[in-house]
Structure formats: structure tokens, C-alpha cells
Amino acid sequence: MNDSPPWLSPVEERAWRGMLRMHDLLVNQAGRTLQSEFGLSATDYSVLAELTRTPKGRLRILELAKVLGWEKSRVSHHIARMAKRGLTDREECADDGRGAYVIVTPAGREAITNAAPRHVEDVRRLFLDHLSPGQITLLAEITDTVIGKIDI
């Protein structure tokens, strides 16, 4: 019995490879601007964006890892690098001695506040401006479906 999965059709392969290529191009292009103009990497921006979405500007390390789709060790290492630059800090969790919060510092909040308008311009220029409202809605539905099926 042959247990190998069926190969991708030409259209399926085109969709898969195109999505990967588009993602890489968008992240690289937007990341260049963040780095050159604001001294932030794309991953710095992602961390700061998630932290500043919360009312208190903090998340447990495991919560941050989940929302970013990263391993806990990657989050810990990246947060340590950001802390050396004064963008984030760690705060012990009072109700759980084993846990810690990642918090955005005033410098981190200032960095994302400065970078966000330009980042939004890049997202529009590089991505959204090339799609119709219907395509944007459909893509949002597609990403929600796929993420919902694989998000743990």
C-alpha cells in the first residue's frame, strides 16, 4: 500500500510557493525600513506590537511565545537582547514564582510609537494597495481559517 501523500497540483504548488515568497518579500522590505530608520528589526517590532496591544504593556513569556508562534527559548533570547537595548524588561509574576512577565519599557513604547506610522505606510504600499477590498476580506478569511486549524 502506498502511504505517500498526493503531490501538489501545479496550482496548489503555485499558491504555496507564492505565499511563502510573498511573505519573505513583505517581511524583508518592511524590515529594512524598520531597521534603517528606527533601529528595530522586524522581530523587535512584532514583540513591541504585541506588548503594546495589552492594557498594561505586558504578557507572560508563554503567552508572548504563543501569540508570536515562537518557541519559549527564542522569546527568552530575543527579549534578553531587547532588554539590553532598553526596549523591554522582565517582571517576576507575583502569583507564580516560576513565571515572568515581559514588559514594554518607556523606550520601547517610544520606539514603536515612532515606527508604527511608517510601518503602516509600508504595509499599505507593499501589500494592501495592490488588492481590492474583496481580496483583502477573502485573504483575511483564508488566514483566519488556516491559523485556526494549526494554531495550538
Score class of each variant (00 low, 15 high):
residue 1 M to D: 05
residue 2 N to Q: 12
residue 6 P to C: 13
residue 6 P to F: 12
residue 8 L to R: 15
residue 8 L to Q: 15
residue 9 S to H: 05
residue 9 S to I: 07
residue 10 P to V: 11
residue 11 V to D: 15
residue 12 E to G: 14
residue 12 E to S: 13
residue 16 W to N: 07
residue 16 W to I: 12
residue 16 W to R: 15
residue 16 W to T: 07
residue 19 M to H: 12
residue 19 M to I: 11
residue 19 M to C: 11
residue 20 L to M: 13
residue 20 L to N: 11
residue 23 H to V: 07
residue 23 H to G: 06
residue 25 L to A: 12
residue 29 Q to Y: 10
residue 29 Q to F: 08
residue 29 Q to G: 08
residue 30 A to L: 13
residue 30 A to T: 14
residue 31 G to V: 02
residue 34 L to M: 04
residue 35 Q to A: 05
residue 36 S to Y: 08
residue 38 F to N: 03
residue 41 S to M: 01
residue 41 S to V: 02
residue 43 T to P: 04
residue 45 Y to A: 11
residue 45 Y to N: 04
residue 45 Y to M: 12
residue 46 S to D: 15
residue 47 V to K: 01
residue 50 E to L: 05
residue 51 L to S: 02
residue 53 R to N: 14
residue 54 T to S: 10
residue 55 P to K: 02
residue 56 K to H: 14
residue 57 G to R: 02
residue 57 G to H: 03
residue 62 L to W: 00
residue 64 L to M: 08
residue 65 A to C: 13
residue 68 L to H: 03
residue 68 L to E: 02
residue 69 G to A: 06
residue 70 W to K: 03
residue 70 W to F: 09
residue 70 W to S: 02
residue 71 E to W: 03
residue 72 K to C: 05
residue 73 S to Q: 11
residue 73 S to N: 10
residue 73 S to K: 11
residue 74 R to L: 09
residue 75 V to F: 06
residue 75 V to K: 00
residue 76 S to M: 08
residue 77 H to K: 11
residue 77 H to I: 09
residue 79 I to C: 02
residue 80 A to V: 09
residue 83 A to N: 13
residue 84 K to W: 09
residue 85 R to K: 15
residue 85 R to M: 09
residue 86 G to R: 09
residue 88 T to E: 04
residue 91 E to C: 02
residue 92 E to T: 04
residue 93 C to A: 14
residue 93 C to I: 06
residue 94 A to S: 08
residue 94 A to N: 06
residue 97 G to L: 04
residue 101 Y to R: 04
residue 106 P to A: 04
residue 108 G to T: 02
residue 109 R to F: 02
residue 109 R to Y: 01
residue 109 R to D: 00
residue 113 T to K: 14
residue 113 T to A: 15
residue 119 H to I: 03
residue 121 E to S: 05
residue 125 R to D: 11
residue 125 R to Y: 09
residue 130 H to V: 04
residue 131 L to R: 03
residue 131 L to N: 00
residue 132 S to E: 04
residue 132 S to P: 00
residue 136 I to M: 08
residue 138 L to G: 09
residue 139 L to Q: 07
residue 141 E to P: 03
residue 141 E to F: 12
residue 142 I to C: 12
residue 143 T to D: 05
residue 143 T to W: 03
residue 144 D to S: 15
residue 145 T to W: 00
residue 146 V to T: 08
residue 148 G to P: 00
residue 150 I to D: 00
